[in-house]
Design a protein around this nucleic acid. Structure first.
Lengths: 94, 94
DNA sequence: CAAGTATTTAGAACTTTTTCTAAATACTTG
DNA sequence: CAAGTATTTAGAAAAAGTTCTAAATACTTG
């Protein structure tokens, strides 16, 4: 179930920070890594989890792999959260 | 930092299911537990995490402790998620 | 194709999380 | 207050997650 995977992926602060970085646009793995005090291997591990959760996708150019936000899954999460708040999301907003 | 705690709390399927149960209204610890194939001790552990994350609060009556959804923290989460989606939430809805 | 750069994979060490059993606490009521 | 029910706490075992080092893969370009 992909839903569970998404929440797991979002549960780590490093991964959330990666997503925050990607708001600005696509970024290579190395570039992402330079924002953290961790080895590239560890960053790669986090990227893999984000990718499996469909929160990012990659595209290759030259020698680089660029990562990019994929926001489609976030809709689902938002819907679940707003369902907890006792109803439809749009119905609440004004 | 409470933000991280909330995400951690939401990352477990049992805890999300507990929140789903509580949508219907307050429920005693034992009643919640009866929906799962786990010991009461384990349910108590999950409830403690939800409580620390401010996702539920409790009230006592007779010999029971009733748990109840607290949705106020969810706003924050929603805001963060919608910020990923490249902008304000209300601005997107129509 | 060789050398260089970018990234990932494998595997081990360590940390955190989840679950259980057993015991403790808390409250209620006869 | 004793006995019973509800829930939590403590501590241990097991499972899952995070990080590292070292090595492998992948691609680029002289």
């Amino acid at each position: 179930m992909a839903f569970a995977e998404t929440f797991k992926a979002l549960s780590d602060p490093v991964r959330r920070q990666i997503l925050d970085l990607l708001k600005e646009g696509p970024m290579s793995a190395g570039d992402i890594g330079s924002h953290f005090d961790m080895t590239g291997a560890t960053i790669s591990y986090h990227l893999k989890i984000l990718k499996k959760a469909d929160l990012v996708f990659e595209s290759r150019d030259k020698n680089f792999i660029y990562y990019q936000l994929n926001t489609t899954v976030l809709e689902e999460i938002m819907l679940w959260i707003s369902s907890l708040k006792g109803g439809d999301f749009d119905a609440e907003s004004k």
